[in-house]
Amino acid sequence: MKPDVSLDFKFTSSIEQVWHALTDSDTLAKWIWSNDFQPVVGHKFQFRAEPNEWWDGIVDCEVLVVEEPHKLSYTWTSAGETTTVTWTLAEQSDGTIQLHLDQSGFSEETKARQGAIEGAKYAWTNMGAQLEKVLA
């Protein structure tokens, strides 16, 4: 079984800039989707993407952890599945910022399901039926 999503990224911006990009609603809208996020524990918000054939485009979230500027965590409920998205920021000795993303809580069933299911394809909307064809 595959592990949950665990990714590391490196930034040359300051930790404050990266934190701002993760927690400012307008900035978030530029790289994820439009949203009503607020960096307040317990705040419920949504990301709203363009709906498509497989997905209503809505992600329901609730803020779990806000530890400026090192840790941010929220639930991520979409297409009937709730996972937890956690961002961890760390300043490296060379002055760069390491951003770690962890998305956990996928059910075993979900992990095993193949990409043909509704919802899972949202990231590759443009590929749509073509992806299916390519993979056939």
């Binding site: 990714l7 930034f11 990009a21 399901r113 193949q114 990231a123 993979l135």
Partner: peptide, 29 residues
């Protein structure tokens, strides 16, 4: 098409999604 099979499950799709979004964020910063 063989390498595309790697992205068939949900977790892999999310990985792809976040990598795409973070590269957007990097450009933004």
């Amino acid at each position: 098409a063989a390498p595309l099979k790697e992205i068939q499950d949900w977790v892999s799709l999310y990985e792809g999604f976040w990598k795409e979004r973070i590269s957007k964020l990097q450009l933004l910063l």
